[in-house]
Amino acid sequence: MLMYTLKRLLFTIPTLIGVAVLVFFMLRIVPGDIVEVKLRGDGGNVTQEVVEQERKRLGLDRPLIVQFGDYMWGLARGDLGISMWTERPVIEEIMIRLELSLEVAILATIFATMISIPLGTAAALFRNTWIDYVVRIVTIGGLSIPSFWFGMIIIVSLLTFFNWLPPITFTPIYVDPVANLSQLIWPALAVGYRYCAVTARMIRSSLLEVLAEDYIRTARAKGVYEKLVVSRHALRNALLPAITVMGLEFAFLIGGLVVTEQVFNLNGIGQLFVQSVSRNDFMLIQGMVIMIAAFYVLINLAVDLLYAVFDPRIRYGN
């Protein structure tokens, strides 16, 4: 198992290098950088000479391939470079905001797990009844309703019905859990709806598949109680694919956060990403993309390993 884990871990490296290469060159398809934008953005009369100087200072006057080498060497040492806009280390910019986004993601996961398992199970057991139809519509709704719109509706409802609004500055959970949760539970709800929908749908379909398998039929034929069949045999096996989906969706939550954080005025990774895109801060974009990709790949790996542990049919080793 250890060897397998190490081997899989090793395999993620080429993917991440690929991500770095791809992003680096993709962002430089269109020539130009933000030095000029940054200097002239203040409205001062900036001469071409000053622009060149600043480029030189930031090392942007060097050939692309040298910059690339420099960047990769930095990556190898765990250095994501300096934000072109704020001139602070990319890692630092990310770290300030990571806690908040991660917490929203975790809250959303908890929320999704609690709701999706009963929902998915009910839909599968009462297949093609009104229960199934309701669950299907609710879950497809989760895939269809934009999380940012859902977020807007949440805010507007809170203001209208309770004349209350969640706090807008972040307090860590260990400082003030109430302030923390009352701020973050709402965005978690907004992004969690989709998450919950995806998982519930997965549970429904994999449960249906499992219920059709031979050993369940055997169990039923042997007269085992229906409840027991579902809880002991079927659900356990059906949860495996659900775990995969949950893992992947967790890594993808950043996608939902990118837009939802705008709505809730949250100072998180998503907001930072949108800002770095609208400012063309390539270093920051690169750094964040690599971090997000690494996160995704590692979660993916963790899910696979978990799968291997739970499902004896999967053999690791080769």
């Binding site: 890594a251 770095s276 895109v277």
Partner: peptide
């Protein structure tokens, strides 16, 4: 390895 919207935003930036 990119979430959909992240990849889309990178392309927009590029």
């Amino acid at each position: 390895a990119f979430p959909i919207i992240v990849l889309a935003l990178v392309v927009v930036a590029a």
